[in-house]
């Protein structure tokens, strides 16, 4: 665990809280893509299936392989799952009437199908758990596309939405730094599937980062995209 990894995780955690706070405070989820949020629940569900493995070790009192890192990961995984499901739940129940569904027009199969095919071809092990893990990595890289499309459609984002987007994009950018650090300091550490997907994910946020910093510098309340 290095400073980049822990900062990335905390930034990721912050992104959920920013979004939940925003939705609760404004009683609205306008400008937030339901499709992107739905994809994040799928990403975490497919990736964190190993929670059952940890749970199995705990209920059989097999603590030999449970380290501090396992406990940290388990705690964070449960938080990420709970937060993402809660966001989807909020957007489909009390905030449904404020949802931007009419403009949330991205076709999810356009990312789901390629990610599934890629996960079946390019994986480290041809096992169900490993393929689902790989699928989640590919899907996370592109899951923000409906949100970006909605942002372009709308032409602007309010302050909290752009902080949320910055936190989500920033977390993966910090993971890139973490991977460089781990590659330099840990023998045999190389996970090219995560590296390539992480790079693609960060690159997708590139334009957004640029406008975010321009906005922060100029002190505007809302982020407006050039038309």
């Amino acid at each position: 665990m290095n400073i980049f990894r822990i900062s990335a995780d905390l930034l990721h955690l912050a992104s959920f809280f920013i979004l939940i706070f925003k939705m609760k405070a404004t009683k609205s989820c306008k400008g937030i893509s339901f499709k992107t949020q739905l994809m994040y629940t799928l990403v975490f569900t497919c990736r964190y299936l190993d929670l059952f493995h940890v749970l199995g070790m705990m209920i059989t009192f097999n603590f030999a392989h449970i380290t501090g890192l396992t406990l940290y990961n388990t705690f964070m995984k449960i938080l990420f799952l709970a937060a993402s499901y809660y966001i989807v739940y909020l957007m489909r129940t009390e905030l449904k009437s404020t949802s931007d569904d009419a403009r949330d027009t991205f076709v999810l199969w356009h990312i789901l199908a390629p990610c599934a095919v890629l996960a079946l071809i390019f994986n480290a092990q041809f096992t169900i758990l490993e393929i689902l893990w790989t699928f989640s990595i590919y899907l996370e890289a592109v899951a923000v596309m409906p949100q970006l499309m909605l942002l372009i459609e709308t032409g602007e984002a309010d302050s909290l939405s752009s902080h949320y987007m910055f936190a989500v994009g920033g977390y993966r950018a910090l993971y890139l730094v973490n991977w460089v650090y781990r590659y330099a300091t840990e023998p045999y550490y190389s996970n090219w599937i995560a590296w390539i997907a992480g790079f693609v994910q960060t690159a997708l946020f590139g334009d957004f980062f640029y406008y975010y910093f321009v906005k922060i510098m100029s002190g505007d309340a809302a982020l407006k995209l050039p038309t």
């Binding site: 990721h12 190993d50 990961n73 995984k77 973490n178 190389s190 996970n191």
Partner: peptide, 10 residues
């Protein structure tokens, strides 16, 4: 595809 890497990240 190289050596298997355990998933110790989030």
């Amino acid at each position: 595809t190289g050596d298997y890497v355990p998933h110790d990240e989030l």
